[in-house]
Design a binder for these strands. Structure first.
Lengths: 157, 157
DNA sequence: GTATATTAAGACAACATAGTCTGATATATT
DNA sequence: AATATATCAGACTATGTTGTCTTAATATAC
């Protein structure tokens, strides 16, 4: 898996927050209920984002969390990095410690191109774009378990 | 990380095997010594590849493992699938169970394009190509720990 | 100020992945 | 046949990730 589960939780919560008014705090309990994620675990995830200054938090009644800046200024990549860190994305495809520009592994060049594309995508996509997609909520909260079909990907030609 | 550690071990062992004569068996001990991987663990990894018929094994003196077919007929993807399975590669970027063609998540389309590129790359690269790269051994066996530089990837423009 | 609502912090448990070890099985050599 | 050399199989341990729970800290409302 490219992203950790923890990271996905953070992403989903962020997108959900982006669909709400930025002026008000939303309780983590509300988020965890809507997303069906353990409250306590989500709390820890969101703390990471708060430390990274993507979220703002407030204790006490009417408290909760909200986006620290407007949703069009927070990218997919921002969230990923705040939770999984930079290293995970930036690893050698073969996991070789010595791999780098000076001493590239056999996949280095092709991998670098892919990584850049991936990062470009992650950097180009903002939370408000994700939240704006009408079909998102349907998917997000669907109980269905329609499996992705391996054939879609392996029948490449 | 995109690939499991287990998978990387299998890849590295496979590439190493591809650089040896296909007519002879190589002991797992020899491979584990050269790659600096635990012998017993590598044994289990290679068993997966043997079951997937990528490798052939032989017990007893002069036994060991070897590629089941010529190195230009085994792809990177073959090895990955034999160890990590199909599912890992084929997951939704947001980890949503309902995501699929019928009910795509907001990243589905962009993600699908990337995945296809990644799979194309993995399918296009064969073990003999990887083994043929002169600089591979240098990297593979280097004790150096030259870190990949995050700036290379995050200074996108 | 006391009660209530909320996040923060950290200990702990459950599960998955990675790694170790021991014995069984197959083959070759003598 | 006996012995040495291999992989195969499965139990066991260690580590890391994910998930749960309890307590502390902080803010509001009355």
């Amino acid at each position: 898996m490219l992203l950790s589960k923890t990271c996905l939780y953070g992403l989903r919560a962020s997108v959900l927050l982006a669909s709400k008014a930025q002026s008000e705090f939303t309780t983590i309990r509300e988020l965890s209920d809507e997303l069906d994620i353990s409250f306590h675990f989500l709390t820890k995830v969101l703390q990471l984002q708060t430390k990274a200054e993507l979220l703002e938090s407030y204790k006490g009644p009417n408290g909760g969390v909200k986006l620290a800046r407007s949703a069009d200024k927070i990218t997919f990549l921002d969230v990923v990095v705040s939770i999984d860190g930079v290293k995970k994305i930036n690893e050698c495809a073969l996991g070789l410690p010595g791999c780098g520009v000076m001493r590239p592994c056999p996949l280095h060049d092709q991998w670098a191109v892919l990584k850049e594309r991936m990062l470009n995508m992650m950097q180009a996509v903002t939370l408000d774009q994700l939240a704006g997609r009408k079909d998102f909520n349907k998917t997000l909260f669907s109980g269905s378990d329609e499996a992705t079909d391996a054939k879609d990907f392996f029948d490449l030609k």
